[in-house]
Design a protein around this nucleic acid. Structure first.
Lengths: 190, 190
DNA sequence: GACAACTAACTGACCGGTCAGTTAAACAGT
DNA sequence: ACTGTTTAACTGACCGGTCAGTTAGTTGTC
């Protein structure tokens, strides 16, 4: 396929998901968001299912770029990994991803991609925690694996709450910061 | 409406949600799960939407009963509040609730009910944390409100992970226990 | 002219909701 | 106690709309 076409369709899918959510997403919505027609989407991707899986792969690629550690302060890096970036403006996309995630049990392809995503995030967090311990920023009795599991779950839960209960991004950030400060950061050289 | 009929329909809705999930749930599924016909469901509840809101209210009632504090050890109580009960067997229901929760932004009625649920849970956890501090079980420098926010988010995130990534209930419990032990419980009389 | 990209028009399945009726129980009048 | 009336509960059959996916054909390009 044309690379331009692929990009256009993936971007249109992103836009349509933000606007309509996952449950309300139709092929027509995606077509409307792009310069293409609905049959063209089928021409390129076969089924809706396949298009959406391709979209998740497209997101995973972007995610990998985000995991280019900047060697920052481990505490700051944990916080920025677990809080939404500025370019994720509005709840639309976050909500749609939550909806999709909830489809994992019914859809192997979706599940595989979310498992991969969370696995990689967790591993990266684990490494960051270890780095923090080595650099003496974190207490040396923290369990990297357990902490990473905690943090991934916490990040998930906070994003969910931002969507359902309407927590602001600042509140999310504050909660993560508090956890990192009180439970990880070494206050007195232990 | 007949109380028997109401109970029957609510139970059937529960069963149908477990089997089909929220996205895949049809009025016919609920009818099949009960002894009633599809038009009867409409007769009692009007629209699918209203039926589902009534179902959430039904769940909220059950939830209130769960919040009858047993005056247990605060640490134990926090853990049991945040981990699934034994009678929640299988992922079906948990998944369906996650799907529904993700509909909050599109549906005011749904949102209201989840907000109420999470609000009450958070308040109860907050009280339990305070009790723990007063009883000297928890460190006296813990911030009850911040901790409650943390714990509610953590609980949400863990349940989500049990559904998507396939974490077992034992793993969920272990993570919550670790948090309570390392971040709340007073190790040396501080 | 052959092939890739694209589309207007269409189809079949599904689903929420409606409607015209049925059943059975409660109730009132005699 | 018998009979006519009302009403809540319920249902089979159907309708309107929606949406994923198909078909048959057009356009553009090498």
């Amino acid at each position: 396929m044309d690379d331009d076409a692929e990009d256009e369709i993936m971007e249109a899918t992103y836009g349509a998901l933000c606007e309509n959510g996952y449950a309300g997403l139709t092929m027509q919505d995606i077509a409307d968001e792009s310069e293409k027609s609905k049959p063209t989407l089928h021409y390129h991707y076969g089924t809706k299912q396949e298009l959406l899986l391709a979209f998740l792969d497209y997101l995973l690629d972007e995610f990998h770029e985000r995991l280019e550690g900047d060697g920052d302060d481990p505490a700051d890096e944990l916080v920025s990994l677990l809080t939404p970036r500025e370019d994720e403006v509005g709840d639309g996309f976050r909500t749609a991803m939550l909806e999709m995630k909830a489809q994992s049990p019914y859809n192997e392809g979706v599940r595989d991609r979310f498992v991969e995503y969370e696995e990689e995030l967790k591993t990266y967090i684990e490494d960051t925690v270890r780095r923090g311990v080595e650099e003496g920023v974190f207490r040396n009795d923290v369990d990297a694996e357990g902490t990473a599991e905690m943090l991934v779950a916490l990040g998930n839960g906070l994003r969910t709450r931002s969507v359902t209960v309407g927590k602001t991004d600042d509140e999310l950030r504050a909660t993560v910061e508090t956890y990192v400060e009180t439970c990880l950061v070494d206050g007195d050289g232990v």
